[in-house]
């Protein structure tokens, strides 16, 4: 049976992981390759590397980093950040990335999803959506969650699927950083609305939250950052726990 996926997310700035990482058994926690390899060895099912470098000039170093990641890591990984065109994606996939994620650029230019999907196949296009509830409506935000838009979560996710996204990565900004659990209601609604896989993001604080994301939210995968980076939840422990709760886990 297909297993639920556990996905650590690493933010990269100028080639280094950004958030403080609390690992004793790692030489250089700022090295995305070493940290990614550790997660892979611990049983992570996929990895996400988000480039949050401020300038295009700095981003050029990212393709070189992607190649280094692909050389050393034997599980699939997604890369994102600053992708606005087919020309941006080709070098990342050629360097060995399996998927790319788009967020703000897709909201500003939805046709981008069609173009990427046609050029590279739906399976490697992840539409990342940051949402927050405003006046009881889940509203899409861009620029790292800073700018509210006119778009509504559910119609945008559906449109993304129709334009050729292969997967939706939904982050609830209302839940992100709270450690109070994933946003179950919008997840389960996205699940019933979509025919493509769904990744839950934002709010993971304990192992039980992952059960909720999979069982109640019906997510196909769950993504988290700080709880893994700070060692609050160790991936092998999480997977053992989930298996014990009869969740299909590798």
């Amino acid at each position: 049976m297909l297993t639920k996926r556990i996905i650590p997310c690493l933010d990269i700035k100028d080639g280094r992981t950004v958030k403080g990482v609390n690992f004793v058994n790692i030489r250089d926690a700022g090295d995305p390759v070493e940290l990614g390899a550790l997660y892979a060895q611990q049983g992570a099912d996929e990895l996400v590397f988000l480039d949050i470098s401020a300038t295009n000039e700095k981003r050029k170093t990212f393709a070189a980093l992607v190649k280094d990641i692909a050389r050393h890591i034997n599980i699939p990984f997604t890369v994102g950040g600053g992708i606005t065109s087919v020309a941006d994606v080709a070098p990342l996939l050629e360097a060995g990335a399996d998927k790319v994620s788009v967020n703000t650029s897709a909201v500003e230019n939805p046709q981008l999803i069609d173009e990427l999907s046609k050029a590279f196949g739906a399976q490697c296009i992840v539409l990342a959506i940051d949402g927050r509830k405003i006046d009881n409506t889940w509203t899409v935000h861009t620029h790292g969650g800073k700018h509210p838009t006119e778009k509504k979560l559910f119609t945008w996710a559906k449109e993304g699927q129709e334009r050729g996204a292969g997967e939706i990565l939904f982050t609830s900004m209302d839940h992100d950083g709270t450690k109070n659990g994933f946003a179950i209601d919008p997840l389960s609604k996205l699940h019933s609305l979509l025919q493509i896989p769904l990744i839950a993001s934002g709010g993971a604080g304990n192992m039980g939250h992952f059960i909720d994301a999979f069982v109640l939210g019906k997510a196909d995968a769950a993504l988290a950052a700080s709880i893994f980076h700070f060692g609050e939840i160790k991936i092998p422990d999480l997977k053992t726990f989930l298996k014990g709760q009869k969740i299909n886990i590798r």
Binding site: M1, L2, T3, R5, Q123, L194, I196, P197, D220
Partner: peptide, 15 residues
């Protein structure tokens, strides 16, 4: 052909 609980693409680890 996808079902409610089985999305397409088939994406992830399977035995």
């Amino acid at each position: 052909h996808p079902t409610l609980d089985m999305k397409v693409p088939h994406m992830g680890w399977n035995n």
